[in-house]
């Protein structure tokens, strides 16, 4: 009984000291706080899996990969995406439907990634630019294809382009 009392006492004191040793080490560890607005250009880390806003990558010729097939629009569970087509006449005189406006409403998006997953030509990806706050709801509605952009012609070189964009879409 008395043996338990004293051994318990010393064990307790020892374990308390071990605990304080641990916190002492913690006191000198590197601090993990990210000072956000200051570090946005330097050490800011956003996970690769983060889906912030839908974007349509354009290459240097202002061309995108969207064939306006409307798969994304059909798959979107809450009508965030609206693909508006227009009919143009090709050089051979054929009539062809191409993308006119790709409308995306950020305010309605649940970031489920279904559009990116189902896109047959990898034309859209989710970017990591998370600073999307606006003052009015209307500002959340955006057009993803740039003014005057057109569909990239199918070539053999498209392959590496598709591979490059694929991991981003994951």
């Amino acid at each position: 009984m008395s043996g338990n009392y004293f051994s318990g006492l010393f064990k307790g004191v020892k374990s308390l000291l071990v605990g304080m040793g641990e916190t002492w080490k913690e006191l000198w560890t590197k601090k993990v706080t990210a000072e956000y607005p200051e570090n946005r250009k330097t050490t800011l880390f956003v996970s690769d899996r983060w889906r912030a806003t839908l974007t349509m990558p354009h290459d240097e010729n202002n061309e995108h990969a969207c064939t306006s097939c409307k798969v994304c629009e059909t798959n979107c569970p809450n009508g965030t995406i609206q693909v508006i087509q227009k009919v143009i006449e090709t050089e051979e005189g054929k009539k062809k439907k191409v993308l006119d406006r790709y409308l995306y409403d950020l305010g309605m998006c649940t970031f489920c990634n279904l559009c990116v997953l189902t896109c047959p030509s990898d034309a859209i990806v989710f970017s990591k630019d998370f600073e999307n706050a606006t003052f009015t709801r209307d500002r959340l509605k955006e057009q993803l294809n740039k003014e005057g952009s057109k569909l990239r012609e199918k070539k053999k070189e498209v392959k590496p382009e598709a591979e490059k964009s694929a991991p981003e879409a994951e």
Binding site: T23, E26, L27, T29, K30, K31, V32, T33, E35
Partner: peptide
């Protein structure tokens, strides 16, 4: 407190 929790605290 912040240092013990590897934070920066008020800054």
């Amino acid at each position: 407190t912040a240092f013990f929790q590897s934070r920066l605290g008020p800054n």
